[in-house]
Amino acid sequence: MVSLSGRSGNELKIYHLRDEIRQSAAEFRLSPEIVGAIVLDELERRSFEDDIEEILAVILPGLVYWADWSIGIAQIKPKTAEIVYRELLGNCPKPNQIVRSLLDEKISCRLVAAYCRHIINLWRDAFPPAENTGLDGDGARLLGTLYSLDPTGTWGVNDRPIFNDRGEGIVASMPQIRQLIET
């Protein structure tokens, strides 16, 4: 069992979501460490503005949908979630339901994994290492880099993607995530 003493609030959130992270990763054939590392990265980047947007999402979900603000622990935009629902999950809720789903931490874990699979599906023919989402894999670097950007990157899908500092940081946090999500 992992020691929780001295862990940050964000790390404790990952620990409490460990079952959802593992299940979601398995469903979309990803390493659970990459899913957890992306969620942790998004949690650590949260701001006061994110909190205000989430309050508005509860009160006015239609506004948040049309403004396309990133919300929830995974900071997913409603229109991105709509693509994930339609293409990978086989159903597409109404806009207000999409926004509400992004506020649900357990559903957000599944949406992170599904969105990562969406990115891999776009890249795997041109860049086969995209499938390697394990510790220190180039697929993990790709997902860490593109999760907060356009899924095809700045220069489109290609066989030589450039990984950014955020992607490298997400990969560097994966061993820490492994400790938090182990049973």
Rank of each mutant, 00 (worst) to 15 (best):
A126C: 04
N121W: 00
I38T: 10
F28M: 10
L43I: 14
S148H: 12
L180C: 12
I83R: 15
N164P: 04
L56H: 06
S101C: 13
P151H: 04
F28T: 02
D104K: 06
A114I: 10
R166E: 04
E42W: 06
E131Y: 01
G9H: 07
A67V: 04
N121T: 03
R160T: 12
E11G: 05
H118S: 01
K94R: 15
E87R: 14
L103C: 12
A81E: 07
G90F: 15
K94P: 03
K13L: 15
L135V: 04
L60V: 14
A74H: 08
S5V: 12
R100L: 15
R29A: 15
V99W: 09
V99C: 12
N96M: 14
T154K: 15
V64L: 12
R110S: 03
W123R: 02
L143E: 01
F163W: 09
V99S: 12
I177H: 01
M174P: 02
C92Y: 09
S5Y: 08
N158L: 08
R110L: 07
R29M: 13
D165N: 09
G153Q: 07
L142Q: 01
P128Q: 01
R160V: 08
S31F: 05
V84M: 05
D150Y: 14
R141K: 13
G139L: 11
N132R: 11
S173V: 01
E44D: 15
D138P: 00
V58H: 10
R117N: 02
V84E: 05
L180M: 13
A57H: 12
I14H: 07
L56K: 12
T183E: 14
P175Y: 03
I52R: 11
W69N: 05
L88P: 03
L60Q: 10
H16Q: 14
R22T: 14
G72M: 13
I14N: 06
V64K: 08
D104Q: 10
K13A: 12
P128L: 00
A140F: 06
D125A: 09
S24F: 03
V2D: 05
R29V: 14
L135Y: 02
F127D: 00
I177R: 01
I59L: 14
G134R: 11
F127I: 01
N164Q: 06
P78L: 11
S47C: 00
L122E: 06
P151V: 11
V2T: 15
